[in-house]
Computed example of a mutant assay.
Amino acid sequence: MRAALLYSAGKDSTLAALLLEDFYDVTLVTASFGVVDPEPAREAAAALGFPHETVELDRAVAREAVSRMYDDGYPRNGIQRVHEHAVEQVAAATDADAVADGTRRDDRVPTVDRPLAQSVEDRFGVDYLAPLAGIGRGAIDDMVAERLVVETGPSAEIPKADYEVELRSLLRAEHGAGAVDEVFPEHTQSRVRGRR
């Protein structure tokens, strides 16, 4: 069986891949609007020994998300919209038996609720998997420390291939650098460099 896992090169999506690899042939998939280079995800996938693909997302969804984030003054609803679109696009674009992500129990965003998961499964003939959905951040951090080499730092400084990087870039292009600082709170990001 083949699983296509939404992949940013961060610790959560990487841990999800490790949890699935005993049961699926896992392909790490970076969903992108074509704004940033997916190279950080490709490099991490190669270091971990997983194949990597990219799936193109609809730029209209990016514009909608950026507009929503700017109007809201925070990123939650825009990121959620993009993640739902990415799950659907990966399900539609791959020949996988399952589509997975690295969402965890205590994530505020993104999440995939039961109706969306069931809709994706019904419409695309795949299983939706969220292997970290029952695991909190503390346990995830412990598991990651045991198995992965990770670099961390401020979100603006860690090169990744995720929605946030692209949405920051699009927000900056449309509304200026100050809008990014107003909408996105500074937080720590992770990038996986390999296995221990």
Rank of each mutant, 00 (worst) to 15 (best):
A9Q: 03
D122V: 00
L132M: 09
V26F: 08
A98G: 01
E182G: 08
H187E: 11
D113H: 14
E88G: 05
T94A: 03
I79V: 10
R147M: 11
A86E: 00
P185S: 05
E56G: 09
V192E: 05
I140F: 06
D181E: 15
D12E: 14
R147Q: 14
V144M: 11
A161Q: 04
D127S: 15
V26R: 03
Y128T: 12
R76K: 12
E174N: 07
V120E: 02
V126L: 06
V126R: 07
E39C: 04
L167E: 03
L132Q: 07
G153K: 03
A31I: 08
E53L: 14
S155N: 14
V66F: 08
V192K: 10
D127M: 13
A130C: 01
M143D: 04
T103N: 07
M143N: 01
S119Y: 08
Q89F: 04
R123G: 03
E43S: 12
F33V: 10
E164Q: 14
E146W: 14
R105C: 03
V126I: 06
A92M: 10
R59G: 01
E121W: 02
L116T: 10
D95T: 02
A31H: 01
A41E: 07
V99Y: 02
Y70L: 09
E186V: 13
Q89M: 15
L5D: 08
A91Q: 02
P110N: 02
D142P: 00
A179K: 04
M1S: 13
I140R: 02
P185A: 04
D107F: 11
S190G: 01
D107Y: 10
R104G: 00
V109D: 00
P154H: 10
A9W: 05
A130F: 00
P131Y: 06
A139L: 02
T54A: 13
Q89I: 01
A16P: 06
E84G: 13
Q118P: 00
T54H: 11
P185Y: 13
R81P: 00
D122P: 00
H83R: 00
V144N: 07
P38A: 06
Y163T: 12
P110F: 07
G34Y: 13
V99A: 05
L18A: 12
R172L: 01
R193D: 04
S32C: 13
D113Y: 12
Y70F: 14
D162R: 11
E146I: 10
P159Y: 07
S169F: 09
D37M: 11
R42V: 09
G176K: 07
L57P: 01
A100V: 05
R137T: 12
V183K: 07
V112F: 09
E21N: 08
V36Q: 05
A16H: 05
L19G: 12
S190W: 04
D22K: 14
G176N: 02
G125W: 10
L171E: 11
R191Y: 04
G176M: 04
R114T: 12
G10E: 06
Y24M: 08
